Simulated scan of single mutants.
Amino acid sequence: MIDENRPGDRPGESLRERKKRETRQRISNVATVMFREHGFDRVTVAEVARAAGVSAMTVFNYFPRKEDLFLDRIPEAVAAFAGAVRDRAPAESPLTALRRLAFRFIDAGHPLGGVGKGFAGFWFVVADSSALLSRAREGAEEVERALAGALAEAGVADPDLTAAVTVAAYRSVCVVSVRDELAGVPYEEVAVDHRERMAAAFDGLERMFPGA
């Protein structure tokens, strides 16, 4: 997914690492434009490679599956949700840290927050492709597994159940907001409702898993 706000430099990043990250983002940006213009299933990896000025092998070096060219945020989501738990403040509960992450994404208009201006076109492409829908479900499972591991390290009583319900609740809030956007509900209304339902979801999680 295209993100014009990703920084050009990151602390401690070597020149080689920066060039690799920029190449990965350039390939994903080119693919995103092509998929949105022509449809995911009607564009080949070879066509993306030619448009990005790289070989097909280079594309697969960065993106093992075609679906990952469009859903390129899955590794970031895995790292963010597990990292929110592992890197939380000493007195902060895992669910409080995850709530904070969710609203940081929402406030920043980050793609992982679920809603944002201009996101509807992205979700139209996903909704139109069974392959992308399947990969999105797999991505949610990857986040769930990583989160369960982090919750186990944090000493949560039932980390697998807590992770499964947390990811399901987060996903449910996002799916409803995406559905409303695709149905033509004004973005401003969707955004307000999204925040309210996300807060209610975490309220429910904290009641369900006290101390988590």
Rank of each mutant, 00 (worst) to 15 (best):
164 A>V: 04
128 D>G: 07
89 A>F: 09
51 A>Q: 13
103 F>W: 10
103 F>A: 10
176 V>H: 12
27 I>L: 11
140 A>I: 04
86 R>D: 14
40 F>A: 11
124 F>D: 15
151 L>R: 01
53 G>F: 06
157 A>F: 10
130 S>G: 11
192 V>C: 08
109 G>F: 00
191 A>S: 11
19 K>E: 15
175 V>Y: 14
32 T>E: 13
163 A>V: 05
51 A>K: 06
80 A>F: 07
43 V>K: 04
83 G>V: 01
143 V>H: 05
12 G>N: 07
15 L>S: 14
137 R>Y: 12
92 E>P: 00
126 V>P: 06
148 A>F: 07
109 G>Y: 03
195 R>V: 06
93 S>A: 15
18 R>L: 13
41 D>C: 05
188 E>W: 07
189 E>Y: 08
143 V>I: 02
161 L>D: 14
204 G>V: 00
181 E>H: 07
212 A>Q: 03
135 R>W: 12
124 F>T: 09
197 R>W: 10
92 E>N: 06
52 A>L: 08
171 R>Y: 13
203 D>F: 08
163 A>W: 03
15 L>G: 08
127 A>W: 02
55 S>A: 01
79 A>H: 10
177 S>Q: 03
14 S>L: 12
91 A>P: 09
58 T>S: 09
209 F>H: 05
44 T>R: 02
40 F>Y: 15
65 R>K: 14
191 A>L: 10
168 A>D: 11
102 A>F: 08
160 D>L: 10
133 L>N: 10
212 A>T: 02
192 V>M: 12
192 V>F: 13
177 S>T: 01
88 R>D: 13
150 A>S: 05
90 P>L: 02
78 V>G: 04
68 D>S: 15
128 D>Q: 08
119 F>H: 12
172 S>N: 03
144 E>Y: 07
55 S>T: 03
89 A>T: 02
49 A>D: 11
39 G>Y: 13
165 V>F: 09
158 D>E: 14
206 E>H: 01
8 G>P: 12
80 A>G: 09
39 G>P: 04
38 H>S: 15
172 S>C: 04
37 E>Y: 12
5 N>V: 00
43 V>M: 06
209 F>I: 03
157 A>Q: 14
95 L>D: 10
2 I>H: 15
141 E>Y: 14
157 A>N: 11
114 G>S: 04
120 A>P: 04
122 F>P: 06
